[in-house]
């Protein structure tokens, strides 16, 4: 299991005891479908009050998945920092009634509204996704996606990636340690960029060589291009209840949007 992913995952989900959360009891396939449906509905909504309700629902999902609140919100804030420019510019670029003026550029209420819409949607969708799907094991995610008719080869690729992200992360740390031991200190110069480039190149070489050994080992065990995927996924009444509940909730959101 990938350390990088599961470090995030463990940190995201570790409660120090056997987890029996509401979300854990639901089939991963149901969770994926629900997360996608939630995302599509949220993207199609415009009303700020309705979007806020959606965001609150995503918060509720996060709490019931028992994701550590501080860490999850920090990740959300990191995502927000990516889009802050986009959001911050909208009030000035959307024409409309002036709210205030900065250096002669008027900020419009309409622009602020659109910025708020994007921020609410983006945060609600990513929070629901992390709560519903991010709370699974990466391997279980692969199994569930396979059952949802995602092409087999893509699942293998996902499984390999999940498996080797950990190994390669450790290799990266070793190479980085070796550089540090030789007095490498990153700064703004060509030497730094060249050294980092050599580091990436070295990782690439080692990755290719590793994959040759993996292929040899797999062939030795009879690999012919297919890997069996065993899972214990089962659709139960809980899934039906959960799916129905979410459907009703999403229908209410769409209804509220239509009324307003």
């Amino acid at each position: 299991m990938s350390h990088v992913l599961s470090a995030g995952r463990r940190a995201l989900t570790d409660t120090g005891e056997a987890r029996g959360t509401l979300i854990d009891g639901i089939d991963v396939r149901t969770r994926i479908v629900v997360a996608v449906a939630f995302a599509i509905v949220m993207v199609s909504l415009q009303d700020l009050a309705v979007l806020t309700t959606g965001l609150l629902a995503a918060f509720f999902l996060m709490l019931s998945a028992r994701l550590p609140v501080a860490r999850t919100l920090k990740r959300m804030a990191m995502m927000d920092s990516f889009i802050i420019f986009l959001i911050a510019m909208l009030p000035f670029t959307v024409p409309g009634d002036a709210m205030f003026t900065v250096f002669g550029f008027p900020a419009s209420w309409q622009g602020l509204r659109q910025a708020a819409e994007i921020a609410l949607t983006a945060n609600a969708v990513i929070l629901a996704l992390m709560a519903l799907v991010g709370s699974t094991e990466p391997v279980t995610l692969g199994h569930a996606l396979r059952r949802l008719m995602v092409p087999e080869k893509l699942i293998y690729l996902l499984m390999f990636t999940v498996r080797y992200v950990d190994v390669l992360q450790q290799e990266y740390q070793r190479l980085r340690m070796a550089m540090k031991a030789r007095g490498f200190r990153p700064s703004n110069n060509r030497h730094t960029y060249r050294s980092v480039g050599y580091l990436v190149g070295m990782m690439l070489v080692r990755a290719i060589e590793r994959s040759e050994r993996i292929l040899g080992a797999m062939k030795c065990r009879g690999f012919t291009g297919r890997m069996p995927l065993f899972d214990t996924l089962a659709f139960t009444y809980r899934d039906a209840v959960f799916a129905t509940g979410v459907t009703v909730f999403l229908a209410c959101l769409i209804g509220a949007q239509a009324i307003r």
Binding site: V4, L157, F160, T161, R163, M203, A207, I208, L215
Partner: peptide, 21 residues
């Protein structure tokens, strides 16, 4: 398949590397 998987993981790890700017 193994090469693609390992390379996919390599580029995932590479995207976690930060360089100063």
């Amino acid at each position: 398949m193994p090469a693609a998987g390992v390379l996919s993981a390599t580029f995932f790890v590479a995207s976690l590397i930060h360089v100063p700017i």
